[in-house]
Nucleic acid binder design. Sequence first.
DNA 1: AATAGATCCAACCGCCGACTT
DNA 2: AAAGTCGGCGGTTGGATCTAT
Length: 220
Amino acid sequence: MGRSPCCEKAHTNKGAWTKEEDQRLVAYIKAHGEGCWRSLPKAAGLLRCGKSCRLRWINYLRPDLKRGNFTEEEDDLIIKLHQILGNKWSQIAGRLPGRTDNEIKNYWNTHIKRKLLARGIDPKTHRPLSVTAAAAAAPSSRPEDQPAARSSCSPETSGACCHNSDDDSVSAPHHGGIDLNLAISPPRDPPSPSPLPTATQEAEATSSATVEETTPTRKS
DNA sequence: AATAGATCCAACCGCCGACTT
DNA sequence: AAAGTCGGCGGTTGGATCTAT
């Protein structure tokens, strides 16, 4: 089905946000809360599309954002979660207080990928590069070793084929010899009275614990 | 000091699922 | 049931900044 554009592109600003725009957006959300993004720009006096406002708020202006360098614990947690969830950045972000999906995605692409490669680990499969290379060079007859098969059930797409929509839990994959029995809990709700564990606690818990997921998989 | 290449990251784009009409 | 709207997501891009030569 067709879709109308999310906004009148001809009458919206694009590119970097100015301080004034930021202030308007923050002031509006403080006064009215996060609501209808489509109508927000007009109501807040911004010449931006609603999507752009939402992104700016979520990725940059939200007061609970942590900003700053990622810790070793966060690194490890991201790697572990990526191993299970693949590129489900929003779900990964949901388990890292103060971090956004965009931030984690960028961090993954710029730092962690390289870090894993330096360790000889394929950032896509979380398997040793030698294994991955060998599998690519000489695909075995085992379906799980076939690149195509892996791609259909790799962390990249685990949300699709490894995700059990019946109970919303993720079965424990055994990537790179690591045995993680994880199911993912719903994304954290910052103002929640029962805050989630810190990244450090998470990392510790993750190694052995089961976390439950209720977040529906978006795309498959 | 100049500049070419590499890196980083904020923002945009297009698609999808959920919800409404 | 079909069409339309909206919020949200992941992938990608482009410009700013950093580093090496």
